[in-house]
Structures are given as structure tokens and as C-alpha cells.
Design a protein around this nucleic acid. Structure first.
Lengths: 341, 341
DNA sequence: TTTTTATACTAAAACGTTTTAGTATGTTTG
DNA sequence: CAAACATACTAAAACGTTTTAGTATAAAAA
């Protein structure tokens, strides 16, 4: 049977003092509130003896702060997001916050559902990888003064804190690297470009190709086709229709996975002959044969920045500062797959 | 500025009725408590109009239920755990529970810290991948009537619900499969065997080898050496000292990753020549060249079972049922790496 | 007619905190 | 010696619910 945890009331009655006094002492306000040294010690000792832990639910109700953050990503089982989650977890716990992770599957309905589920009061702040159509919901949250920091993508016209990477630059550099290695016909395989991060990746690729007087070859697979598992078929077709391609640049991790699968099925030598770069690193890329070159996001830096933007929002009374939009640099991890043999 | 959400009190005073009535109606107890149809409708309509959402913190305080579950794994960024988390997340939300994920790094101190952090009352139940030395802590939780379901591993002498796989059988089958494919000198690479799941994997391997009249070759890397990043060196040495090996069986996903890395560094042809099996599947294994054979855990089944064991614990008043220990079957995904060429 | 039963609703306590606005002393100060 | 101040402590309200134990009226049963 569940034994009742010790409460402040319990301590107070046991020591024959008031609840107020106990609360003051336990909150470190003894000096400020003129509680005598002896009594302070007595309370502290007894609390420790009884292994007192404040009931955080009661604290939340009273203070309106839950010390809970929501970390909403596209899919927590995706390596990029789970790695990020792991790092953010530690940073948040360090600051006294617990984190609820959830996956919105890049689906507006699911996003909205989740956001209203964690309705006001229940949660102190949101870190969100926004699905394309939830600009209005985010705007609502902001209007209600709920702390929000966007991650990975943002809305051009929305004044909201965000942490993203310089997708266009990253994509430009990766493409340029392929070109520097004498690849001439670089295929770019991407999806829904209506999202800020995807738009940037496409334009970076196009810029680099054009700057070097080459022709772009872009395959854009509709997002819902990918969900239906038809991504591989699209890539297969694309490769058949473009035999001239000598390199492939995949705009996301999962596209690279599908792509490698297609290459393996088609002809396992292809992987060795083509130049290959993937956006977002994966633990397995460096042990693949050939090792796959990738654009790696600064996961630690991203997590730190997220918390750095979140904390002032959590503290502020009447928010009037300009929301910060942080853009971080990526790193091109050059491996075997992008070096012309 | 943050506008105050509508409360029951607000609705009550607006409609000139009592808080009790509003609460009854909103909790669907209108009939049972003899609230008239008209008033019921009035309340419901007004609540909808005002977009009323109950303050879950207040509900938690009153009812003692937070509708929060803790899902504590070794490392949420590990593919096995993050995939599991993704599936469990959906199942839990379906039942009205939110999930806090956290990583204990297989470290007792961190485990204990986390468990006391989510102290009683704050959280309704725990799903735990236990680090080796927290048997006593778990026992405490059980004694306090806190719902706990162990995952992936368990303590032999502890009466606690758990969901694990049949590690010995899985390991036996995988080894037997290698032997059936004419591999004669199979190396087994593992770590801390004091954990139930690792013990099972080792004994399964040893059984199979002995049954077939072969000699075992086991490398056991101490867990803290792996943490320090020395795993690769151990494997490297092992391979040098055992040139006779014609196959390798890695007892965990991350050992397989280190192993493949070592093989690649040593001589990339090795990967093709050796028989290779990894415990736990990875998205990249099927697109590796050669595709890596793996022991795959039934993630969906595991998640469903976890919730199936958890729910009755969450409901029960005075628990007196015998804790269930569920053991699930794995699947050997036979790919190129384990077929003798 | 009185008693029981059903219907429609509510006052107030409780959950465990935090915090405001005190009181009751003793000690300085003008 | 009264006024001001400092010290040590506390009563009670508040946060937003749920739930127990009611009350008041009308209808049915005795």
C-alpha cells in the first residue's frame, strides 16, 4: 500500500510550528523572513530525516510553473532528432526542467492536437519543429505569452525565437565540394520545399550548380508519397531517366537511406562510382563502404542555443524583447563517397 | 500578456450556478447526479464556446493522478530505444498518458537521481531499463505501490513486472545459423554480462557452440572501457590474437558499429569474408554492403506488452496480483553477411 | 396525511504548496 | 517614556479542481 509522503503540514505539526515557517525555511528564505538559526536548523534537520520532497504538483498549482518543457519534433526515432533530444535532455535537467518529447510526424493536425493537449499551465514552454501549416497556432501561443522556440525550420513572417542552420550555405558548400572533385552532373534529391529548411537546401544547391555553369537535376518527391513508402520508386525512376548523373546529393537523412537502398538494389557498384553526399550525419555513415560524406549539424551548439533562448522567455514577466533568430553553421564531413576516384 | 484561462469557477459564476454542478457536467456525471438536460446542455455549450480546458495540475493535485509516465532507458539516442520510444509514445497518448523520456546511461547514480526527481505523486508510473545496481531502488518503489514495469532486462530475484526478449534463444539461433552456414570459428563480442540480457546472450552463444562441438571465442569488454571509447581497441586486439576467426557475432548494436569500424580500418575486404551478425537491427544494416544479418526485437509487440502490464498497475487499489514477466521472441533477419560465399 | 423516494442542485472541504498581511514581542531612538 | 524599528513567527487565502455530504422541492407510496 502506498504510504503518504511527508508534507509541509506534517512537518509543521510535528515540530509545533506553522506551515508558513516551514515553507519559508525550506525555500531558503529563513534569513529574509527572520526565522531564528535554531528553528531553521531544526526544520532542515527534520525535513532531511523524513526525506521530505515537495509535492511538485502543488507547487505548480500555486506558482503556475510546472518546470516541464515540451520538445516536439518530427519523429523522435529519427537519428537527428533523437541525438538532439539526448543532448537537450541533459541541458534542461541541469536547469531544473523536465522534458516531454513528442513526435508530430510533420502533420499539422497532430501538431495542433499535441499543443492543445499540453494546454496552458500544464507546461512552461515549447521547443517545436513546426509542421508546415501551424503558423497560426504558434502565433496564438505567442499572443498568449507562452514561451516558444522553433527548431530546424521557421516561418518567414513570424516573430518567434528560432534556432536553425544555414541550409543554403551548407548545401552550397556540399555541392561545391562535389564540383571541386570533378563531378559534373549532380542530382539533388529532396522533398516538400515549402518548408524553410528545405527551401534553403534547394537554393544552395541551385546556386552552386549555376555558379559553376552546370545544369541542375532535381528530384522533388512529394512528402506524402514518402510517407506512403513510395520514395524508393521515385528515386529509382529518377536514376533511370538520368543516366548521365555522376553524383547524388540527398537533402535529408531518410532520403539518403532510401537512395542507398535503391543503389544497392540496382547495382552495388554504383555506390562506389557515384559521388554521394547526405544531409545530416548518421552513425553508420563513417563505417559504410565507401564512407558517406555528410553535412553535419552542430547538435550540441543547437541544444545550447535552444536553452539560451528559452530561459529568458521562461523568466520574463511582460515580454517586450525582440525574438532572436539564431542561424548556426554546419560542418561538411568529407569522407570517401565524395572523392572522385 | 498571458490571459487567464477559463476555469470552472468562471463558468459557474457566469451561468449563476455552483462549481459542483459545472464539474459534474464536465465530468460526464450529469445523469448520475441528476443534473437536468437543459442545464447540462447550457454548461456544455458555454464550456465549448469559451474553449474550456481543465487545469490538469489542479486535477492532479486533487486526484493524485498526473497522467504522466516516465520512460527511462539507457540512452534515448540509441536507435533501439528511440524506435521503441516512438512506438510507446503513440500507445501511451492513446490511453491518455503523456510520457517523459530520460536516459540513465546505464549508471546507477543517474538512475536513482532521476527516480527521486520524479518523486512520488509527480508521476503515475515508471517504465525502466534498469542499470545493474538499482534493484533496491526498484524494490522501494514497489513497496510504496508505485507502478513499475522493467524493460529489456530484469532482476532474477525481484518480483516485478517486466518485458524482455528470450536472449538465450535468440543468441542460440543466430549462432546456429552461422554454424549451419559452415562458419567454424565464431567470435562473440560482448560486454558486462552481469546484466540479465547480456548473460542470456552469452549463454545462448556458448550453448550453440558446444552443442556443435566447436570452441567458443569470447571477448568481453568491460562496460566502463566502452564508455571511455576504448571498445575499438579491444576489438582490434581480439581480432589480431584470433586470426582463425571466420565469423563475428556482436552482442549489441553499438558493439557491432565499433566492430564494423575496426574491420573497415583493418582491411575492408574482411567485412566481406567474415560471417557477421549483430544483435538489434539498425536501419542502415539492410543497405550496408554486404547487408548485415541481425537479431531484431519485436518493437511493436514490446511496446504493446509494456502498456498492457502498466495499465492494471495504474488502476489497482491494493495490488495483490502476481507480477507478470513477459518474454518475447525475436526474429533473425538473415542478410548477406551471414551467408558463406 | 404522513412517509418515502426521486430529482435537481449546492456548500464546503480537501489536495500541498506559496505568499500576503498580519501579531507579539523586544530593542532603539528622540 | 512614547514612538519607531527589528526580530520571530503565524493565520488564512489562494491556485483549480473533485467529491462528500448535504438541502429543497416534487412525486409516489403508505
Amino acid at each position: 500500500m502506498k504510504k503518504k509522503p511527508v508534507s509541509i503540514k506534517h512537518i509543521a505539526s510535528e515540530l509545533n510550528i506553522s506551515v508558513t515557517t516551514v515553507s519559508f525555511v525550506l525555500n531558503g528564505k529563513a534569513k529574509e523572513k527572520h526565522i531564528s538559526k535554531e528553528l531553521t536548523k531544526k526544520v532542515l534537520d527534520y525535513a532531511k530525516l523524513m526525506n521530505y520532497r515537495p509535492n511538485q504538483v502543488a507547487q505548480s498549482l500555486r506558482t503556475g510553473k510546472s518546470k516541464l518543457l515540451v520538445f516536439m519534433v518530427e519523429d523522435i526515432s529519427n537519428s537527428f532528432f533523437s541525438k538532439l533530444a539526448r543532448i537537450f535532455e541533459d541541458i534542461a535537467y541541469d536547469k531544473g526542467y523536465k522534458v516531454i518529447f513528442c513526435s508530430n510526424e510533420n502533420n499539422d493536425e497532430k501538431s495542433n492536437e499535441l499543443i492543445t493537449l499540453f494546454n496552458f499551465r500544464q507546461v512552461d514552454g515549447f521547443i517545436i519543429v513546426p509542421s508546415p501549416g501551424i503558423k497560426d497556432t504558434i502565433e496564438e501561443l505567442l499572443k498568449d505569452g507562452v514561451p516558444v522556440v522553433l527548431l530546424d525550420r521557421f516561418f518567414e513572417e513570424l516573430d518567434c525565437c528560432s534556432v536553425v542552420i544555414d541550409n543554403a550555405q551548407a548545401s552550397f558548400d556540399a555541392t561545391q565540394h562535389l564540383i571541386d572533385n570533378k563531378f559534373k552532373n549532380i542530382g539533388f534529391i529532396t522533398t516538400a520545399v515549402n518548408q524553410s529548411q528545405m527551401g534553403g537546401r534547394l537554393s544552395g544547391y541551385e546556386d552552386a550548380v549555376k555558379t559553376n555553369g552546370l545544369k541542375p537535376h532535381t528530384l522533388q518527391i512529394p512528402f506524402n508519397e514518402i510517407i506512403k513508402g513510395r520514395g524508393k520508386a521515385y528515386i529509382h525512376n529518377f536514376l533511370n531517366n538520368h543516366p548521365e548523373l555522376d553524383a547524388l546529393f540527398f537533402a535529408t537523412n531518410y532520403l539518403a537511406q532510401s537512395g542507398l537502398e535503391v543503389l544497392k538494389e540496382k547495382d552495388s557498384k554504383l555506390i562506389r562510382d557515384l559521388g554521394i553526399i547526405a544531409f545530416d550525419d548518421n552513425d553508420m555513415f563513417k563505417i559504410y563502404d565507401p564512407a558517406i560524406t555528410s553535412v553535419s549539424q552542430p547538435l550540441v551548439e543547437i541544444s545550447i542555443k535552444l536553452m539560451e533562448l528559452m530561459l529568458p522567455l521562461l523568466k520574463k514577466k511582460e515580454g517586450s524583447e525582440i525574438p532572436q533568430k539564431v542561424v548556426l553553421k554546419t560542418e561538411l564531413l568529407i569522407r570517401e563517397s565524395s572523392i572522385m576516384k
